[in-house]
Design a protein around this nucleic acid. Structure first.
Ligand SMILES: [Mn+2]
Ligand SMILES: [Mn+2]
Ligand SMILES: [Mn+2]
Ligand SMILES: [Mn+2]
Lengths: 223, 223
DNA sequence: TTAATAATTTAGACAAACCTAATAATTATT
DNA sequence: AATAATTATTAGGTTTGTCTAAATTATTAA
């Protein structure tokens, strides 16, 4: 099925909103896409015809199985490009979203496959969000980067990604090591830096880059 | 000025057609873009309003100075992406055009600048076509890859790009060396291989990859 | 130099993707 | 339960980019 860029953007937005609400409403989707409720209704009718959503007028919508599959391929493309931009083109992690928002619409399974291989099949994007694989599955690793935790969440350090000397020195300095109990205090959106409490003892402030290299034992179950 | 994807495609197509005709006609442009003459006329009216072309009804059109500037940035994006796809993602040189046709429309000067840097500022794309720089200038080097020559054109070998042993062995085998006089006999579009006469003596058949590494002294003057 | 042919433009339609304003349905509040 | 507030849909438009068919202009050939 060939989808337009706008259709893809709508599908992806529904996917994201669904994680925090059972059915998505017209107003919320319009707000997220910076469009108007009337326009969303138009689009929902079309997506319903294409069987990508379950749409009950006045009662919101949710992705169909096929819609979810499509959403995951778009998310995959988006996050792989973000990873590429940061890892290869030296962009900062907070500069890449808008570009990925466009690059994600180049639909070529072969391109994405090659890009994935080239990047060494990364499991998380520069913001710490997981990158779905070709089949739409997320990493089964129970270790996730510290960056995906939100304020007030807790976790235990399971391992450090890079065995780079500087990284090691830094985490030592911050009293972090394998097994440390971490509690996120605050996330500064300006630079993505994180204030956290280590082993209920030390209050530390670390960069997002360092945080990406600290893997936390994943709480299996609902997110 | 913000241009749509379709507008960009039209501008670029005019640019290419202009190299073989003074003014471009409606029918030719329609054929190249796989659209209809009536649609081209519509678009030409709009591009005229945006002052990107000089359009005289019934007498064809040509790019304005500004139009040419725009065309060159699109060509630059196209060719840089092609280079990326071949050099980094292991695509074959004959598989990349369609993908670049889409990637070229991600308009971000910063992205293209970083990509260029990352790729080490290549001067020619995988087909041997020159990549314009940020200012729209082509390489001033008087050496161009053998691949940009057309059938029946002649040239003198100025140098070999890679000092790789295999490349050296191959060009020796084909009787090619610095100073050799080359005459292109035929280009096989299936694989891009080239039949040529060396020093008016040996008829040889070489791969496009090898041809890319053979630099020819450029005939300065009109193209 | 006129008639035939080819190229181009115009007229009129249509789908996609938006919009505003008006109307209707749902949900929350007294 | 009635009313108010919120949310969603419909009606009717607009712009972009395409199309087909008809009319017009330019070019070529008789
Ligand atoms: Mn997008
Ligand atoms: Mn991201
Ligand atoms: Mn190309
Ligand atoms: Mn294109």
């Amino acid at each position: 099925m060939k989808l337009s860029i706008s259709e893809e953007n709508h599908i992806k937005a529904i996917y994201h909103l669904q994680s925090s609400m059972e059915r998505v409403g017209t107003k919320d989707l319009a707000a997220r896409l910076k469009t108007k409720p009337a326009s969303v209704t138009d689009m929902m009718k079309r997506l319903k015809i294409k069987r990508l959503i379950d749409y009950k007028p006045y009662y919101g919508f949710k992705l169909s199985a096929e819609g979810k599959r499509v959403a995951l391929t778009i998310v995959r493309r988006h996050r792989l490009w973000e990873y590429f931009l940061v890892e290869k083109l030296q962009f900062d992690w907070d500069e890449v979203h808008e570009l990925a928002e466009e690059l994600e619409h180049v639909r070529s399974p072969l391109l994405i496959e090659r890009l994935d291989t080239y990047l060494n099949r990364p499991k998380f994007d520069p913001h710490g969000d997981p990158i779905p694989d070709r089949e739409g599955n997320f990493s089964q690793e129970d270790a996730v980067p510290l960056t995906i935790l939100k304020a007030n969440q807790k976790g235990k350090v399971s391992r450090i990604t890079k065995n780079n000397k500087e990284v090691i020195d830094l985490i030592m300095l911050k009293h972090i090591r394998k097994g440390s109990r971490i509690e996120i205090k605050r996330i500064f959106t300006i630079d993505g830096s994180i204030e956290l409490k280590v082993d209920n003892k030390y209050v530390e402030h670390i960069s997002p880059l360092l945080a990406q290299n600290i893997l936390i034992e994943h709480e299996n179950g609902k997110k």
